[in-house]
Design a protein around this nucleic acid. Structure first.
Length: 807
RNA sequence: GCCCCGAUAGCCCAACCGGCAGAGGCAAUGGUCUCAAACACCAUCCAGUGUGGGUUCGAAUCCCACUCGGGGCACCA
């Protein structure tokens, strides 16, 4: 069947979306593009089967559907394979792309093959560089020196988002900290918009993803408070969400690894102790830091801060439970109302002063809840919200502090010390400093990997490409060096959906006019693994592009579907676990259509599919059963179906309508079930009903073919041909439903007595309440159940239900 | 520790605004066809919705508590 239909589909190109004279309304369906590591696997098969249902459905509904595909082809696997086997990452990548592309074609994905792109193509990454420079011009791309996450295995830095439970999300190595100068994108400038614009996505994105993003951005509101430090000219500002507890601050803590801690310790009696402590915590990995029961440690710096609200002298400690890169790296400690401060105070014998009255039955240690303020001067008696506002006003009046907002989100670290990525288009000149590469000199192409040592060693392999690195400064012409870092590959995937609109464009990253027409993406489909990283970055880029005046929308993806994973025997498939199911084996055994059908029918798309629980051979049987229908139709093409058997016509109308509703609400498994139901009804009509010559049977079989075309394109095409039509069924159009056929002439009304079903009545759907009540009370089952007892009330829900409540 | 989501037949899953627990499939059993088997077709079997309370004429559906499973966050002041 593949040999038969692939050339036909190539010829007809039903899914080419760029025709200029196409007047159909537009829909943009986007599948997350794959990383080209080897051939497609079961996970791809599921994701692309689901995306295809949506794309093909909209095509059947008469939309001009843009459904592109490409490859996210920069990244470590290519580089690691290259190191391991001594081959060129580019060649490895191209080979895998060719293999995946061939598999996708066989898998009958409805992609527009005229729009493919891959991100390791200089014609693509040139625009990464261009966008980077636009951000640089606006101060959104900058370099800073700080302690960064370092993966000792991959020998590269990682973004905050790529560290999971203190481990590298890619290779699972324990992440350490390293002080480096790195490139960042100022995503924190967009924190509020990234958070607030999620209101637009409510109901259209999985609630879980929105929640994860909200948590990740982690906006909190509170106040910044200035504390004078004895023996220091400048006060130190702290951030707190509980300014109402300021009277309860009994000590002060600075992050041990902050510059401030070092400065405060310098020259004091605590200096040596502090240095030893600092050395000690550097040895503690993030893994250990994450342990919840870790005892609080710290060093008294022999110095004092002054609480601005009551002039009290409070001791300053350096500790590792305060983070250097959140807030200001220093806190006021209120042990009575913060569990961490409570633990520290207990360990160091510091005073604990209650300033919020806990409820009488409170049994915990620190009380973080609401309650009336006590021991708090002018705040006494106020509850939390009022006290917070009053304290902020008090501080602001005296210039001692101000209301403030903080975020958990950090700026996005994009430098990577690896080869296979987009070179950062900056030249470092001894006299001019950082100099952007002029636009007309883009792309800065990667030097050939040949002769380069790609082995990770902590600095970028690009530094070894002498001829590439040493360039004249674009500004002064003097000897200068290129920046040798490459960009995080998440930069590549932050705007690829725009590039599809005109992937060959040479005078800009994307076609602004086409973006106005096609964007935002109507439906995005992909794994929940990208719930934070990719989706947050893509949203950020979109907002930057909006501010650059290049797009007129603020959110790139209108609707998001996260498909589940394909697992085997309850756990994720892996070679080492020995439960790997090979897609190629499944395809060879059961065929493309059966595998796709199995994926779609297994359950709701967002649920995991356990391959042990599903039956591709069952799917195969069903497809054969559906296909046989087309051979049993004996009426001619174009026969007047209105003369057909009414029962089957009703079943067809109902199935088509139910399937439509199911697809639109993304219950694809239900849509398949409705198709199965129709196949059963048609079979019955042929074998033991009006027979294959009845026009209603043709109507049903044609509807089945079209419904199946969303899931099983080969089978559907075969049926369509056998039914006497020209290809392609993919554009046959969704069957029209006569609304009259959906109206039943009688419905079954359930009659309950005290909530138990006692009788059933066949009534017209238009029956009135009073009439139905009378009928129900006279029903034999009701009379019997009542047994002469009186009636309290009768609940009538015409036409489906009556409930008689006995006295 | 905090926060989300889920639990329906042996298994995977349906059930619209609270209104007959069953659409579909897998497996099983019986039958038709066959020399026999496979295929195909027909039929049958199977739960009262995780547990305990509550609201309601009526709860799988709403509320509370709990159990189990999955996921997210985790010294973010």
């Amino acid at each position: 069947m593949q040999e038969k239909w692939l050339p036909v589909w190539d010829e007809l190109a039903p899914f080419r979306s760029g025709r200029p004279d196409d007047e159909r309304p537009k829909k943009y369906v986007l599948d997350m593009f794959p990383y080209p590591s080897g051939d497609l696997h079961m996970g791809h098969a599921e994701a692309y089967a689901l995306g295809d249902v949506i794309a093909r459905y909209w095509a059947q509904q008469g939309f001009n559907v843009l459904h592109p595909i490409g490859w996210d082809s920069f990244g470590l696997p290519a580089e690691n394979a290259a190191i391991k086997r001594g081959i060129d990452p580019n060649g490895w990548t191209e080979d895998n792309i060719a293999q995946q592309k061939a598999s996708m074609r066989r898998y009958a994905c409805s992609f527009d093959w005229d729009r493919v792109l891959h991100t390791s193509d200089p014609a693509y990454y040139r625009w990464n560089q261009w966008l980077f420079l636009r951000m640089y011009e606006r101060g959104l791309a900058y370099r800073k020196d700080s302690a960064v996450n370092w993966c000792p295995n991959d020998q590269t830095v990682l973004a905050n988002e790529q560290v999971v439970q203190g481990r590298c999300e890619r290779c699972d190595a324990i992440v350490t900290k390293k002080k480096l100068t790195q490139w960042y994108l100022r995503i924190t400038d967009y924190a509020d918009r990234l958070l607030d614009d999620m209101a637009q996505l409510e109901g259209a994105w999985p609630e879980k993803v929105l929640l994860m993003q909200r948590n990740w951005i982690g906006r909190s509101t509170g106040a910044e408070v200035r504390f004078a430090i004895e023996g220091r000219d400048e006060p130190v500002t702290v951030y707190t969400t509980r300014p109402d507890t300021l009277f309860g601050a009994t000590f002060f803590v600075v992050a041990a690894d902050s510059d401030l801690a070092a400065e405060l310790a310098a020259g004091t009696a605590a200096e040596a102790e502090f240095a030893a402590y600092l050395e000690g915590i550097k040895q503690v990995s993030d893994i250990d830091r994450l342990a919840t029961d870790r005892p609080k440690t710290g060093v008294f710096l022999q110095r004092y801060a002054v609480n601005p609200v009551n002039g009290e002298r409070i001791p300053i400690y350096a500790a590792d439970y305060v983070l250097a890169d959140y807030g200001t790296g220093a806190i006021m400690a209120v042990p009575a109302h913060d569990q961490r401060d409570w633990e520290f105070a207990t360990a160091f014998g510091l005073p604990i002063r209650t300033v919020v009255e806990p409820p009488a039955d409170f049994e915990g240690e620190a009380y973080a809840g609401d309650g009336p303020a006590v021991n708090s001067g002018f705040l006494d008696g106020m509850r939390k919200a009022e006290a917070v506002a009053a304290m902020i006003a008090w501080l602001e009046e005296r210039g001692l502090g101000t209301g403030a907002v903080n975020y958990r989100l950090r700026d996005w670290l994009i430098s990577r010390q690896r080869y296979w990525g987009t070179p950062i288009p900056i030249v470092h000149c001894p006299s001019c400093g950082e100099v952007p590469v002029p636009d007309d000199q883009l792309p800065v192409r990667l030097p050939s990997a040949e002769g380069l040592d790609l082995t990770p060693k902590g600095t970028s392999p690009l530094g070894g490409a002498e001829a590439w690195v040493n360039v004249p400064c674009p500004r002064c012409g003097g000897a200068a060096r290129r920046d040798t870092d490459t960009m995080d590959t998440f930069v590549d995937s932050s705007w690829y959906f725009l590039r599809y609109l005109d992937p060959a464009k040479t005078d800009g990253p994307f076609d602004v006019e086409a973006a106005r027409e096609w964007m935002p993406v109507d439906q995005y489909v992909g794994g929940v693994t990208h719930a934070i990283l990719h989706l947050l970055y893509a949203r950020f880029f979109t907002k930057v592009l909006h501010d650059l005046g290049m797009v007129d929308f603020e959110e790139p993806f209108t609707r998001l579907l996260n498909q589940g994973m394909v697992v085997m025997g309850g756990s994720a498939m892996s070679k080492s676990r020995g439960n790997l199911v090979r897609l190629s084996d499944e395809l060879a055994e059961n065929g493309v259509d059966s595998v796709r059908l199995t994926m779609v029918f297994a359950g709701p798309p967002e649920d995991d599919i356990d391959w042990a629980d599903v039956s591709p051979s069952g799917a195969k049987k069903f497809l054969a059963r559906a296909w046989r229908l087309s051979g049993d139709v004996t009426s001619p093409v174009g026969v007047d179906v209105t003369t057909g058997d009414l029962g089957l016509r009703r079943a067809t109308a109902r199935a088509v309508d139910d399937a439509r509703k199911a697809v639109e609400s993304q219950r694809f498994n239900v849509a398949v079930a409705k198709t199965m139901e129709l196949v059963n009804a048609a079979r019955k009509a042929i074998d033991s009903g009006p027979g294959g010559a009845d026009p209603a049977v043709r109507e049903a079989a044609e509807a089945v073919a079209i419904m199946l075309s969303l899931v099983a394109p080969y089978t559907a095409e075969e049926m369509w041909e056998r039914l006497g039509h020209q290809p392609t069924v993919a554009l046959a159009g969704w069957p029209t439903v006569d609304p009259a056929l959906l109206v039943e002439d009688t419905v079954t009304c359930v009659v309950q007595v005290a909530g138990k079903v006692r009788d059933r009545l066949e009534v017209p759907p238009t029956i009135g309440e009073d009439e139905l009540r009378a009928l129900a009370l006279a029903a034999p089952g009701v009379v019997k159940a009542l047994g002469g007892a009186g009636i309290r009330t009768v609940v009538v829900r015409a036409p489906r239900l009556v409930n008689v409540v006995p006295a």
